[in-house]
Design a protein around this nucleic acid. Sequence first.
DNA 1: TCAAAACATGAATAGTGATTCATGTTTCAT
DNA 2: ATGAAACATGAATCACTATTCATGTTTTGA
Lengths: 233, 233
Amino acid sequence: MSERRRQVRSEAASARPRKTKAVPDALPAAEDEPRGIQPKTARGEATRRAILDAAERVIGAKGFSEASIGAITREAGCAQGTFYIYFKGKEEVFSELVLEMGRLVRRALTQATANIPDRLAAEKAGLRGFLDFVAAHPDLYRIIQEALFVDPAAYRAYFSSFAEGYRSALADAEAAGQIRPGDCDVRAWALMGIARALGERAVIWEDRTPVAEVVDAAHDLIVHGLQPRGDKP
Amino acid sequence: MSERRRQVRSEAASARPRKTKAVPDALPAAEDEPRGIQPKTARGEATRRAILDAAERVIGAKGFSEASIGAITREAGCAQGTFYIYFKGKEEVFSELVLEMGRLVRRALTQATANIPDRLAAEKAGLRGFLDFVAAHPDLYRIIQEALFVDPAAYRAYFSSFAEGYRSALADAEAAGQIRPGDCDVRAWALMGIARALGERAVIWEDRTPVAEVVDAAHDLIVHGLQPRGDKP
DNA sequence: TCAAAACATGAATAGTGATTCATGTTTCAT
DNA sequence: ATGAAACATGAATCACTATTCATGTTTTGA
């Protein structure tokens, strides 16, 4: 019991793969896919997809470290070795899932808010679109949360992309006089936080309150705040 | 490749300990601490504390599954075996950390909002207290996020306690006419979401914006909402 | 139709780290 | 001061699974 309080070194920032017996590094260093190749046929595409979908379900249900490759391939209906035809390792499927989640959410939000010029109205439609999406993809939602530790870069990229888009949307609306002036960066994070919390309430807490009710209540808060006797037109 | 889409069974809800060789269950079934005892002396208390603190740092830095008992005890400055004198296993320290986080945050919030009868003012003080707290305990903050998978019960307990307290505080304020009428449950979750997101921005994104600025901007949003031309007294 | 390319298999390998335990050392009550 | 209770040690055990690989099977293109 001596030097307490030492700084914990993050040591490679996260998980590392098993050691390979002989690392023959002497090549010009460039290519990055000794394994984990894109399928070339429809059959391969279907198998890869099956594994990815199975991974979503298994990792979403058990969490990253409890989800074994064996469980994933069993769920996908193929042999363990097949997994490594399409993915370099466990981390790689996970990262793909996080990316997919990002793509899908962005698409959902884009569609939900398309052609809505008013920011306050867009805010409501976006919240509704988000809550509908997470209700339809509870596994992906839980997966994002694990990314903070399993793939920090993907985690940050996921939220950064939303934060930046949100911030500039608010800045535009502010310039157009559609919303109250204020710090758009902080407000973007705050609004993302609201959406995230309500999504979690629905998915993790399995709250059954109809989405429309939740959206109405939250949107009232977002528009008018907590203050009493607000101006009602 | 056959029965796809099978339901993934959560299988014991989370991690399970290694199998013990011979389980001699035949006793009346009641006691639950074959290991993991409370220290009886000051020396033991200090060691237990050292391990808990080390676990906070190591798990906070590397995440639960990457944090080995060896790393924790090394950080604590004791032998691996010592760990099992005070904790039944890895999960147990983790759960303690989540509980401790809950206790500390609750205390911080109670102190920050003590003797502030007005809800809107309390809201601001509470947000400030929370952000100050997470800045001082970044490790604990990250740990909560992992609890969703490592110890779901603790995760839910942590947020439930806040949600319920928050909800009833809002309900009281609403009854007293201090805030706008509305769904207090949804609003409680939304406000928690704001705090959580801003805490994350500070801790995970290491954003350096002064806390006071963040609090002012967020509080303006919380009080007045996004709508333009709000009533300014 | 046939060789090559793609896919698929699952048993074997092997790294890892949680947990135990037989053996000391320290502290406490009397 | 002294035996018992507490505490501490760290090497050894051993379950667990990610990953590999030698060997088939299926699909594709000409």
